[in-house]
């Protein structure tokens, strides 16, 4: 049995690393926050972890588009390894091949999409979808209802049903490169979570679908289900007092977001 060990990346505008690491720890993982400079300098090695976490924030201020400059940074960045320079890209692919889990939340999801790490249907880093400006034209912080697809291979959302998390973004509108891409994603059940109305119906309607995403798509996974990214913030709901209506509803102590991290921990222990 493996011990779940999370590496939470920070630096250059990432800003939810603390609560993300907190969520991992609550779920029984060991979690370390590491500045990306330490990864590039070789002081922190992906190989020492089995869960790689790209948290939310504003990588490089989202200049050039959300996480775009960050994607260039990771895609073309070099890691010092045994005295010579290796491509971070290769380190990352190696991590994935070895069965590691990767989660990207909000800006981390945007990063994974723009690096081509999601939906990753061809098994190589190639961007095939994007997350663009919300139809409202604005950044917004509001809570959204989600429904998890029980048929999705995603290991994080196993056994969940309705979820409720905040979105906090200005660029979350899911757009596929083509109808064909969308069809592959849908057929392979790579959409673990979709925006719904409070009644639970998948919707394109604002504000329930906060950004105008096609087919209510709020997150994506790869065909193995080990790589997962989503716009809403599961780490922002791990305790009942984070819920916007905790003072008026009867809620369990643990927030719904914690299940995702517990699923990840459990998967790692079992694999």
């Amino acid at each position: 049995m493996r011990t779940p060990k999370a590496l939470v990346i920070t630096g250059n505008g990432i800003n939810t690393e603390r609560e993300s690491a907190h969520a991992c720890r609550l779920a029984g993982m060991e979690a370390e926050i590491a500045h990306m400079a330490l990864i590039f300098s070789g002081e922190v090695k992906l190989g020492d972890y089995n869960f790689l976490y790209f948290p939310g924030g504003f990588l490089d201020g989202d200049d050039l588009g959300s996480a775009k400059a960050g994607a260039v940074r990771f895609k073309y960045g070099k890691v010092l390894k045994e005295g010579s320079k290796a491509r971070f890209e290769d380190e990352l692919l190696g991590f994935v091949e070895r069965g590691g889990l990767v989660l990207g939340v909000c800006n981390g999801f945007q990063l994974m999409v723009k690096m081509g790490l999601l939906p990753f249907t061809e098994g190589k880093l190639k961007q095939s979808v994007s997350l663009s400006h919300n139809d409202s034209g604005r950044f917004e912080d509001r809570w959204v209802y989600l429904t998890a697809d029980p048929e999705s291979p995603c290991v994080f959302t196993r056994g969940t049903g309705s979820l409720y998390f905040p979105v906090r973004h200005g660029e979350g509108k899911f757009i596929p490169a083509s109808e064909e891409t969308l069809s592959i994603i849908e057929t392979q059940k790579l959409v673990p979570v979709r925006y719904t109305t409070p009644e639970g119906d998948v919707t394109g309607e604002y504000p329930w679908n906060p950004n105008g995403s096609v087919n209510g798509i709020a997150g994506l996974c790869d065909p193995t289900g080990r790589l997962f990214g989503l716009m809403p913030h599961p780490e922002a709901f791990v305790h009942r007092t984070q819920h916007p209506r905790w003072t008026r509803e009867d809620l369990p102590e643990e927030g719904l977001g914690l299940i995702l991290y517990k699923n990840a921990a459990e998967y790692i222990r079992q694999s």
Binding site: R18, E19, H22, R138, D141, Q242
Partner: peptide
Amino acid sequence: RRYDHEVQG
């Protein structure tokens, strides 16, 4: 709503 009032958890 245009301000992130929840970051840091």
